[in-house]
């Protein structure tokens, strides 16, 4: 058994750890709230942009579809955007994303390349020898739309220049503090027709009337679709950040609890050692006194 002095040091260090993890838990909790507020703020634009898109898609006498809306008959290359965190210590958050990617894409029928958003995902993908073509790590804690718009531009470019025939986005959806779910969403080609959202919108607004376009339908879609794609990525990044912080918060809470448990156990052991030492000391004195009395 360790000496009493060693045990005292150990107890003190475990207590310190519990204080650090508790502080990290509080920090993560406030970051979750911020990320969620930011996601909520984007919903107004996303909803409106979607309305306009469905509206345009439903136009009578519409010419051929915009390239960003057109499904390619033959898919040769697939691009996947993987959103993870830059930091660990968040429970299973990062590994869950990578495991999801492995499940979906490890035996995929088309050649794949990846864009990594987040350092952890990038490192894990590279270690698995995946073809990572771009890396957007170290995003600021509360990114603005400007901070992530480059990702959207790159995705649209890859698609339009034929290096990718379909683009998927993998991120972590924030459901509750204790529940986050890794999901995949197809970014491009954007699916507008046949979506239940179109019918939902029509039910509310009635069938779309013919529009006057200024300058032209093509130019307007050129403006809206890339922005909408960018916005979807922005929302995914915010959702993922909320999930990451929530996962970290729970992980830190568990760590604090285990640290405090450990402190209790160590205290018990320490007290036993201490008492044993006192008993030994008394036995020594009594033994010594008895020996003196006998002589």
């Amino acid at each position: 058994m360790a000496s009493a002095r060693e045990m005292r040091l150990r107890i003190r260090s475990v207590k310190n750890i519990s204080q650090v993890t508790r502080a990290l838990e509080a920090v993560s909790a406030s970051k979750v709230r911020k990320a969620i507020a930011a996601v909520t703020a984007t919903r107004a634009y996303a909803g409106k942009a979607w309305q306009v898109l469905t509206h345009v898609a439903k136009q009578p006498g519409r010419e051929s579809l915009h390239p960003l809306l057109t499904k390619r008959p033959e898919v040769k290359n697939t691009l996947a955007v993987i959103v993870t965190g830059d930091r660990g210590l968040a429970g299973a958050y990062n590994t869950n994303v990578i495991r999801f990617v492995a499940r979906k894409f490890d035996h995929y029928e088309h050649p794949l390349h990846f864009i990594a958003v987040g350092r952890k995902g990038r490192d894990l993908m590279i270690r698995r020898r995946k073809n990572v073509v771009a890396d957007f790590s170290n995003l600021p804690a509360a990114p603005s739309f400007m901070d992530v718009s480059a990702i959207g531009r790159m995705v649209v470019e890859e698609f339009l220049e034929g290096r990718a025939d379909e683009v998927y986005l993998i991120y972590t959806d924030f459901i509750t503090m204790s529940r986050q779910e890794t999901v995949v969403k197809r970014l491009l080609p954007l699916e507008v027709d046949g979506s239940d959202r179109v019918e939902e919108y029509e039910a509310k607004a009635g069938p779309a009337a013919a529009y006057i376009y200024e300058p032209g339908e093509r130019e307007i879609l050129d403006e809206i679709i890339p922005r909408f794609t960018g916005l979807q990525i922005y929302q995914a990044v915010l959702e993922s950040q909320a999930s990451e912080h929530a996962a970290r918060m729970i992980a830190m809470r568990n760590a604090t609890d285990s640290a405090l448990d450990l402190v209790e156990q160590l205290k018990l052991a320490y007290n036993k050692v201490r008492q044993q030492t006192i008993t030994n000391d008394i036995l020594d004195i009594v033994g010594g006194a008895n020996a003196l009395a006998q002589s």
Partner: peptide, 9 residues
């Protein structure tokens, strides 16, 4: 009010 439907950049 009552403008014809229009989309513009």
């Amino acid at each position: 009010p009552h403008h014809a439907p229009l989309l513009t950049t």
